[in-house]
């Protein structure tokens, strides 16, 4: 008789979690339902939309196409872990400043993939950004401001400039 539940240890945004899950539990459902990290969203069921993109052991993945048991022992980064030390991540700031989001539903996935893009290459061209966002769908923005957001984030990272503090207003 096979076990119906499996124990896993996963570190999410630097915090360790020990859990028991059914093998069929998807990583995204584990994050949302078991850990209450609802910033990672589900936009499709066939792996096209990328709304559920998180970073597992340094690589962006669609968490709807990874089983929670496969993340046993892994380090997972989600949107909730982007801001550090009271400051926005450069990618968050880029999306905010360049109006890279409208409804905001696809945004966590786009930002996590953008983090990946800029970790691979902090100075990508427009076309490189568009190609590397092939796995993320947005229905609101037409992508133009998302490309601008990633470029702005890259510039911030390259310059080493301090990002905005959490709690900053719109300044008007």
């Amino acid at each position: 008789m096979e076990e119906t539940h499996v124990g896993i240890s996963v570190e999410v945004n630097g915090r360790p979690h020990r859990s028991t899950v059914e093998p069929r539990t998807l990583l995204v459902d584990y994050l949302r339902d078991d850990l209450g990290l609802t910033g990672t969203h589900i936009g499709c069921d066939t792996g096209q939309c990328g709304a559920c993109t998180v970073i597992v052991d340094g690589q962006s993945v669609k968490s709807c196409m990874v089983l929670a048991v496969q993340a046993d022992g892994a380090h997972v980064r989600t949107v909730e872990g982007l801001a550090q030390d009271g400051r926005y991540h450069a990618v968050q700031q880029g999306f905010w400043e360049k109006h890279g989001l409208q409804c905001g539903f696809c945004t966590p996935g786009f930002m996590m993939q953008s983090v990946q893009i800029l970790e691979d290459n902090p100075d990508p061209s427009d076309q490189e950004i568009r190609d590397a966002l092939e796995g993320n769908l947005c229905r609101c923005t037409g992508y133009q401001n998302i490309v601008e957001a990633v470029k702005a984030a890259g510039a911030t990272i390259r310059s080493g400039a301090e990002t905005m503090a959490l709690g900053t207003g719109v300044g008007a």
């Binding site: 792996g47 990328g50 993109t53 690589q59 962006s60 993945v61 669609k62 196409m65 990874v66 993939q113 990946q116 893009i117 590397a132 092939e134 796995g135 993320n136």
Partner: peptide
């Protein structure tokens, strides 16, 4: 192939 996320896995 696919997209970056798919190629990672």
């Amino acid at each position: 192939i696919g997209d970056v996320q798919v190629r990672h896995r």
